[in-house]
Write a protein that binds this DNA or RNA. Structure first.
Lengths: 155, 155
DNA sequence: TTGAATAGTTCATATTTCGAAGTATATGCG
DNA sequence: CGCATATACTTCGAAATATGAACTATTCAA
C-alpha cells in the first residue's frame, strides 16, 4: 500500500473502493488513538464514544459487537479511572446504566474533537467534500442502525 | 445506538459525523467477516486484502500498522492454509515476498466481493450515491497513503 | 573484509477476548 | 402467592492475539 495502487483501485467496483477507503480511515484513526497517549485502550475509547447517553451494558454489548463479560471489564476500567459510574436501571433492577461522569464527558469531548481533527488531516477533503461525505456517512450509519444487529447475532 | 440518535448526530461537526459513519460501517463488515465462517482471523483477512500484489513483509507491517513478528505469524497461518507462498525478493535476498496462490486469489476474490455485497446491503445507498461515496473514499485513501505512516511510527 | 544496518524469525510474555458457571432480579403461570 | 424459567450482569480461568527482545541471514559502505 506504499505507492501508486490508485490505478489498481479504480478497477474495482465502487462498493469495494468505498470499503477500502473506510478501512484506511478506520486504521488511521485507531493508530492516532494510540498516539494520543490518553491512557485508554481501544475498547475503552470505543465505549466512551458509544456512551453519548447512558446505556445499559447489554445494549453496549450489542453496539460494540462483543460479549457481556468484555463490557464488564471495560466498564470496570473506565469506572476505576473515574470516567463513568454504574447506576441501577430503575426500569429493571437487574440492569446497570453506564453514565459518564463530568470527567468522562470531558474526555469524550476530547476524543470526538480529536476524531474530527484527524478526519480533517487524514482525508484531505475540502469543506464541501467533507459535508457531502458526512451526509452520505450519516445516511449509511442510519441504515446500519435501523437494520440493527444482523442475522448472525451471538454465535 | 439502538434508536433515534440521528438527531443527536446532526448536531456534531461534519467531520465527526463522517467518522461515526465510518466506524459503523467498519464494525458491520468485521461482524460479517466473522459470519462468513471462512476460517480466517480478522488479521488474516486483512492481509489477504492488502495482498492485491506480492509484497514484502516489512511493507505489509507498515500497511497493516503492526510489528514484523505479527506479520510473520499471520503469514505462517495463511501459508499453512495454502493461501500464499513466501518467495525471496530477488532485489534483496533478506526479504520475502508474500505471493497469493491461486487458492489465495480465489479467496481474496470472495472476500472482496463479500465486502462489496456488504457495502450495498449495509449502506442502503443507491448507485449514484455509492459512486459519489466511492469517489470521496478513494480520494481519502489516496491522501492517507500519500501521507504514509504518521509521526507516531513504531512507539 | 569487516562492521553496521536491515529483513525476517523465534519464543516467552503481556494483553485482550471469550465462555461457562454463578448471583440477583424479573416475569409468567398454576 | 410461590415456583420455574428467563434475563442482566459478574467472575474467573482458558484461549486467542499482539508485542518485544534476542537471534539468523543478507546487504551495504568504507
Amino acid at each position: 500500500m506504499t505507492h501508486d495502487d490508485s490505478a489498481l483501485i479504480r478497477c474495482l467496483s465502487p462498493e469495494v473502493q468505498a470499503m477500502m477507503g473506510v478501512y484506511a480511515l478506520y486504521w488511521k484513526l485507531e493508530e492516532s488513538l494510540d498516539a494520543l497517549e490518553v491512557g485508554l485502550s481501544h475498547q475503552e475509547c470505543h465505549m466512551m464514544v458509544k456512551l453519548e447517553r447512558p446505556k445499559r451494558m447489554g445494549v453496549l454489548a450489542a453496539d460494540m459487537l462483543t460479549v457481556p463479560s468484555t463490557i464488564t471489564s471495560t466498564a470496570d476500567a473506565l469506572e476505576e479511572a473515574g470516567y463513568l459510574t454504574r447506576q441501577r436501571d430503575p426500569e429493571d433492577r437487574r440492569a446497570w446504566l453506564l453514565v459518564l461522569t463530568d470527567k468522562g464527558l470531558e474526555m469524550r469531548q476530547v476524543l470526538m474533537s480529536e476524531a474530527g481533527d484527524l478526519f480533517r488531516r487524514a482525508s484531505g477533503l475540502d469543506a464541501d467534500e467533507t459535508a457531502e461525505f458526512a451526509r452520505l456517512a450519516r445516511k449509511i450509519r442510519e441504515n446500519i442502525m435501523k437494520t440493527g444487529i444482523p442475522e448472525g447475532l451471538k454465535k
